[in-house]
Design a protein around this nucleic acid. Structure first.
Ligand SMILES: [Zn+2]
Ligand SMILES: [Zn+2]
Ligand SMILES: [Zn+2]
Ligand SMILES: [Zn+2]
Lengths: 152, 152
DNA sequence: TAATATATGTTATGTTATAACATTGCAATG
DNA sequence: CATTGCAATGTTATAACATAACATATATTA
């Protein structure tokens, strides 16, 4: 994933603001700050890194629950995803466009890519059906090396 | 996943012993104990639950590193998997038969099912190739409700 | 036997996440 | 315009998950 330009970032933040407005979701200052920190980071970011960043920005210490609550809000509303395999968080590339997102994560340079391959989705759904299983959420995280890093 | 019978458990443990013997892997007492605790549990088990269990069995307190080291050994050799979405561990149903395993995990009753659907594997591999990505390991954990639990 | 490697014991600490309760601010209701 | 309710935040403490670092033991093997 190439890093986002300033305008892409702005658009990303704006989109979330719009979605919150039209859905009457309280996008408070803290929640907005946390979202911005996550999307500006370009790479998966950890909760305590967010905590440090937000403490610096506001020039006063924040506490873990503040950050985790904001993250919860952002995840619930599909603006952010958690990567379970690395306990980190990333912004969603297309909030509300889908329920599940899948990820490719480079172990070397730590960049990630969000992919919403329909045939993959399909395949997973078929597997669930085949096992009489009703999906509520799926974690698919593919770790390895990106093109750049595998060529080195 | 229905729970394993005593004989299935024995077979499972025996298989690991055989694999270790023929591959000159040191299946020490602790490692064997941890494996047995995991497979006998039938459901995903947490590291500190293993710790408590092993402390009780041996009538003396064990320490986290003891358990985590054993788990590391078992994972490295494909006898056990970690479920990242729930920080828990499960025994592998077919050690050495494959590299990646996928899981269906019931949120209600906590049972799980290991599935190694080839077309799913294939689909994931294609997705990776399509993104110029070299896979080292894949986390696929499908959370939801099993047949029994979704009918209630 | 001495040297080496492998595994375990032990203490402490690092990292990730939540419980519990107090406080604030704001909007709905009477 | 109180007052009541509710959503969000602040604050303190602790729970849950995992590893670093170093000491000791045990097994191979030169
Ligand atoms: Zn997404
Ligand atoms: Zn890379
Ligand atoms: Zn397996
Ligand atoms: Zn169930």
């Amino acid at each position: 994933m190439k890093s986002k330009s300033t305008s892409e970032l702005k658009a990303s933040i704006h989109r979330v603001e719009e979605i919150c407005k039209s859905n009457k979701l309280g996008l408070t200052e803290i929640r907005k700050q946390v979202f911005e920190i996550i999307v500006k980071n370009n790479k998966p970011i950890k909760a305590y890194e967010i905590l440090d960043t937000i403490s610096n920005i506001n020039n006063k210490p924040s506490h873990p629950p503040t950050v985790y609550r904001a993250i919860d809000f952002l995840i619930e509303n599909g603006f952010v995803h958690k990567l379970n395999s690395i306990n980190s968080f990333v912004g969603c590339f297309h909030p509300k466009a889908h329920k599940e997102c899948y990820f490719l994560i480079c172990k070397k340079c730590n960049i990630y890519q969000e992919c919403c391959d329909d045939s993959l989705k399909d395949r997973i759904s078929k597997t669930a059906i085949h096992n009489n299983f009703v999906i509520s959420n799926t974690t698919l995280e593919i770790e390895g090396h990106c093109l750049d890093c595998s060529q080195k």
